[in-house]
């Protein structure tokens, strides 16, 4: 095993299920035999604030938070938040984001407007940016609630981790009644 550490940053809005997604990632890396650390701030997270979760894995991980400008993968659950955290991504890093807009409070009350053309702006900085219609694909696969898992599948293709570990992590972390739908959604994400 090399000493290299892989850094994944998950960003979005409180209530979107970011913490569960980062738990599944961490569990997968642990099962694959890596040291893993993850960090995020709770407390205000379910009240619609901006949420950031750091996940790091490798032979040995020290800091639970990713150094500025050194995220290998930015996993965005919402467009504005994805764009906001681009400076934390290393140049040449991979950006995968859900094609979803959630208006922040100042936009809700009409003081500011939601920025336009964010996907294009992200692509101009990260040319192989992968924009995923999470909700559309999940709905097509039969369960709109599995949008995050479709995205997780898309992120998984960026990592050299055997599929069996992803499946084992899903089996451990996802409630039994939702497991089949999530496995299906994950596979769909892997084809993107």
């Amino acid at each position: 095993m090399s000493d290299r550490i892989t850094n994944i940053l998950l960003v979005g809005v409180g209530g979107q299920g970011i913490l569960l997604a980062s738990e599944i990632l961490s569990e997968t890396f642990k099962l694959a035999g890596f040291d893993v650390k993850k960090s995020e701030i709770h407390g205000m997270s379910q009240r619609g604030g901006s949420v950031v979760s750091h996940v790091r894995f490798g032979k040995r991980v020290n800091s639970p938070i990713i150094r500025e400008g050194e995220a290998d993968i930015l996993f965005g659950f919402e467009l504005l938040e994805t764009y906001r955290y681009l400076p934390l991504v290393k140049l040449g890093g991979k950006v995968v984001a859900n094609d979803l807009q959630i208006a922040p409070p100042s936009v809700l009350i009409g003081q500011e407007s939601y920025p336009e053309g964010l996907a294009e702006k992200i692509r101009s900085l990260f040319p192989d940016f992968l924009l995923v219609d999470g909700l559309g694909l999940a709905t097509a696969a039969g369960n709109p609630k599995t949008a995050n898992t479709v995205l997780l599948g898309a992120v998984s293709t960026q990592l050299d981790i055997d599929e069996k570990y992803w499946m084992a992590a899903l089996e451990k972390m996802v409630p039994t009644k939702a497991l089949e739908a999530n496995k299906k959604a994950f596979q769909l994400g892997r084809t993107l």
């Binding site: 400008g69 764009y83 409070p105 702006k121």
Partner: peptide
């Protein structure tokens, strides 16, 4: 340095809000 070379636009903040 830990300043990112990336320049991004000023964005609306996203503070927490009552549900």
């Amino acid at each position: 340095t830990h300043e990112s070379p990336l320049q991004i636009d000023k964005l609306p903040g996203r503070p927490p809000n009552m549900c």
